[in-house]
Nucleic acid binder design. Structure first.
Lengths: 99, 99
DNA sequence: CCTTAACATAACCAGATGGTAATGAATGCG
DNA sequence: CGCATTCATTACCATCTGGTTATGTTAAGG
């Protein structure tokens, strides 16, 4: 019954592999058997990352036979990632330009 | 010269005390001597959080006498926090409602 | 049934993170 | 100058995090 807060969600997003996972899930649901090769990680490690994204309420999942399919429950995560990317690019411009 | 990336920015945001700091800075710059009592933290600890936000390119600072003033360099952080908050509220509704 | 496939979980470890207490450095003031 | 103020930094410690390897667990197939 422990509910989620702002920082839990951001913590879940704040890791390169998990951002990669979310990029893979942009087009829709995917099974673990296709996710972990795509992120070049081990199966157990990828499962742990998926579990973290689940606990943060970012993903949902369903079973189909022996496979588990995951998908993004709230597409606002992509807006967050987009804003973070814009901030990175702003930083880049700032470093090369003035200041 | 190490440039910042998406996950570094999100990591910097993903902690309650630092979110509090950003809330305090919504109205504009503030000195450390006013920030650390406001977040009910120690001075050294608050300085470390401020340093982390600086390294992520989220804050900027200036000296004035013995005081250091910090402010938010890129207001997109507030959009990110707002989206995260919306996700929290969505989760809450989902838990009390269906599912 | 027994095996295989797909996935989750546990056990373990190295490194990162956040806290405190102590110290250093810069500025302002009597 | 001597001292206080403001802040950053260091040293140290407990906890969290992410990785691997090993081990369940569940469903399908022969």
């Amino acid at each position: 019954m422990e509910s989620i807060n702002q920082s839990e969600i951001l913590k879940a997003l704040a890791y390169p592999t998990r951002i990669e996972i979310l990029d893979i899930l942009r087009r829709g649901e995917e099974c673990v058997c296709r996710i972990f090769p795509a992120v070049k990680g081990s199966q157990p490690n990828t499962s742990k990352h998926l579990a973290k994204l689940m606990k943060a309420g970012i993903l949902d999942s369903r079973q189909e036979g022996t496979m588990t399919f995951y998908w993004v429950k709230d597409t606002r995560v992509y807006e967050i990632l987009e804003l973070a990317q814009q901030m990175v690019e702003r930083e880049k411009r700032e470093r090369s330009g003035a200041a």
